[in-house]
Design a protein around this nucleic acid. Structure first.
Length: 476
DNA sequence: GCGGATGATTACCC
DNA sequence: GGGTAATCATCCGC
C-alpha cells in the first residue's frame, strides 16, 4: 500500500465531501435562505420581503454573491482572486456567511451524530488482538516466544529447537520492524494530509462557511480512511505471521527420535506389559511425563510398537530379552533390598516401612515375571547375564515375596522358597527345545494377530502384584 | 547415498 | 474415541 493510493483515497473522500457541500450550497442558493435572522451576534438584515422596502435589492445581492461563489471555479486564477477579494469586501458577505454557517452547523451535526456512533470494527479488533498476542503489536516482549517454547516442548526436545526458535523470533522481529515502520509512515502521512486539508479548509473558510466542527469531521473522515489502510497493513502483517508460524509448526512436525532414555522407559513398559500393551490414560500421562514427550506421542509410540512387534516377533525377541534382563536386575536389586529390610524388621510385622519404587521394578505381567525367573534359573537367554549370581537365591527368595506379593514382605522366607520352586517348575516348560526363552513371546497375542485383553494394563508405578493377582489399574 | 529404524499421519474399523 | 494397518518422511548408522 503506497502513500499515493492512500492520498488518492483520502482525496476521493474529500471530493465527495466537497460535492456534498456544493449541493448544500445549491440548496442554500435555491431554497433555504428565507426565514433566517440574526445569528451569533452577527448583524443580519431582515429577510427579504419583511420590511417591504429594500427586500428585492437584498435578494438580488445575495443571489449575486451565490452566483459568484458557484462560478468561481470556472474562472481563471487571477479572475477568481479578484472575485474573491470582491466577495470578501461585499457588504452582504457577513450576513450570508452567518446563514451558511448556521446551516452548515446543523447539517454537520446531523452527519457527525450518525458517524460517531460507529462501533469498533470487529475485524480490526481481531487483527489487533492477534498482533498483540503474537508480539508484533504492543510492547516488545520477545514476541512469539511462548508459541516457540510450546512448540519446542511438544517436539520433545527443547534444546534441539533452540535454533529454530531463534530463527522464528528473528523473523518475527523482522515482521514487527516492518510493521512498525509502515505504521509510522502511514501515521506520518495521515498527519501530513490532515494538516494539509485543515489548512486548505481554513483557507477556504474565508470564502465559504466552514466551521471548526466541519473541519473536525473532515479530519475524522481522513483518519477513518487511513485506519482502513492501516487495517490492510495489519491484515498483511497477520498473514505474514501466520505463514511464519505455519512454517515453524511444519518444522516442529519434522520427526525427531526420542531420547534413548525415553525409548528405554517406553520399551520397559511395553515388554513388562506384553500380555496387554495398552497403557491406560494415566499410564500414558505418566510415561509422557517421564519421557518428556506428549501423551499423543506415547500413544503413537505404542501404536507403532504393537504393530511392528506383531509383524516381526522374532526380530524383537532379543530386545525383549534385553529388557527382561534389565527389569530382572532392577527387580533383583529391589528385592534384595526388601529382604534386608524385612529381615531387619520383625517377622511379625510385614510391610513395615517397605515401599517398592517403580524405577526399581516395573515388571508386573505374569509372563514377564515368569520370564525373569526362567532366565535367572536356566540362563536360557542368549543376552541375559545376571550379575552377582552367587546371591541369586537370596534375591529370588525375596523377589517372590516382595515383588510379586508386596503385602507379604519377609513374612515367611521358607514359604517363599516353596512358592519360588513351584513357579520355577511351572516356568520351566516355557523354554523351547532350542533352549531359547519364549516367555517374551506374545502370549497375549491371539491367533488372529490381536492382543487378548486378558489383563488390564496397570499404571507405570504399580508393578508389585503377584502372579495371578488383580492389576491395580481399574480404570478399564 | 543407501537402507533400516522410527515418529507421524491417514484411512478405516469397531 | 481408540486401535490397526499402511504409508510417508525423516533420522541415522554404515
Amino acid at each position: 500500500m503506497s502513500f499515493s493510493i492512500c492520498v488518492a483515497q483520502c482525496t476521493d473522500s474529500l471530493a465527495a465531501t466537497m460535492d456534498d457541500q456544493a449541493r448544500i450550497m445549491q440548496s442554500i442558493g435555491g431554497v433555504s435562505l428565507a426565514g433566517h435572522s440574526v445569528q451569533g451576534g452577527m448583524a443580519l438584515p431582515p429577510p427579504h420581503g419583511h420590511d417591504g422596502t429594500d427586500g428585492d435589492g437584498r435578494k438580488q445581492d445575495i443571489g449575486d454573491i451565490l452566483h459568484q461563489i458557484m462560478t468561481i471555479t470556472d474562472q481563471s486564477l487571477d479572475e477568481a482572486q479578484a472575485k474573491k477579494h470582491g466577495l470578501n469586501c461585499h457588504r452582504m458577505k457577513p450576513a450570508l456567511f452567518s446563514v451558511l454557517c448556521e446551516i452548515k452547523e446543523k447539517t454537520g451535526l446531523s452527519i457527525r451524530g450518525a458517524q460517531e456512533e460507529d462501533p469498533p470494527d470487529p475485524q480490526l479488533m481481531r487483527l489487533d488482538n492477534m498482533l498483540l498476542a503474537e508480539g508484533v503489536a504492543g510492547p516488545e516482549k520477545g514476541g512469539g516466544s511462548a508459541a516457540a517454547a510450546a512448540a519446542a516442548a511438544a517436539s520433545g526436545g527443547a534444546a534441539d529447537n533452540s535454533i529454530e526458535h531463534s530463527d522464528y523470533r528473528a523473523k518475527l522481529t523482522q515482521i514487527r520492524q516492518i510493521y512498525h515502520t509502515e505504521l509510522e509512515k502511514y501515521e506520518q502521512a495521515c498527519n501530513e494530509f490532515t494538516t494539509h486539508v485543515m489548512n486548505l479548509l481554513r483557507e477556504q473558510s474565508r470564502t465559504r462557511p466552514i466551521s471548526p466542527k466541519e473541519i473536525e469531521r473532515m479530519v475524522g473522515i481522513i483518519h477513518r480512511k487511513f485506519s482502513s489502510i492501516q487495517m490492510q497493513l495489519k491484515q498483511s502483517t497477520c498473514e505474514a505471521v501466520m505463514i511464519l508460524r505455519s512454517r515453524f509448526l511444519d518444522a516442529r512436525r519434522k520427526r525427531r527420535n526420542f531420547s534413548k532414555q525415553a525409548t528405554e522407559i517406553l520399551n520397559e513398559y511395553f515388554y513388562s506389559h506384553l500380555s496387554n500393551p495398552y497403557p491406560s490414560e494415566e499410564a500414558k500421562e505418566e510415561l509422557a511425563k517421564k519421557c518428556s514427550i506428549t501423551v499423543s506421542q506415547v500413544s503413537n509410540w505404542f501404536g507403532n510398537k504393537r504393530i511392528r512387534y506383531k509383524k516381526n516377533i522374532g526380530k524383537f525377541q532379543e530386545e525383549a530379552n534385553l529388557y527382561a534382563a534389565k527389569t530382572a536386575v532392577n527387580a533383583a536389586h529391589a528385592a534384595a533390598a526388601a529382604v534386608q529390610n524385612s529381615q531387619a524388621n520383625s517377622p511379625t510385622t510385614p510391610n513395615s516401612g517397605f515401599q517398592m519404587k517403580d524405577e526399581e521394578f516395573q515388571l508386573d505381567s505374569a509372563e514377564s515375571k515368569n520370564t525373569l525367573l526362567t532366565n535367572m534359573f536356566t540362563g536360557s537367554s542368549g543376552s541375559f547375564n545376571l550379575p552377582n549370581s552367587g546371591d541369586m537365591f537370596l534375591r529370588m527368595q525375596s523377589l517372590n515375596g516382595d515383588s510379586y506379593q508386596g503385602a507379604q514382605v519377609g513374612a515367611n522366607v521358607q514359604s517363599q522358597v516353596d512358592t519360588l520352586r513351584h513357579v520355577i517348575s511351572q516356568t520351566a516348560g516355557y523354554n523351547d527345545p532350542l533352549g531359547r526363552n519364549t516367555m517374551y513371546g506374545p502370549h497375549g497375542l491371539s491367533a488372529n494377530g490381536g492382543w487378548q485383553h486378558a489383563t488390564t494394563p496397570s499404571s507405570v508405578t504399580s508393578p508389585t502384584e503377584g502372579p495371578g493377582s488383580v492389576h491395580s489399574d481399574t480404570s478399564n
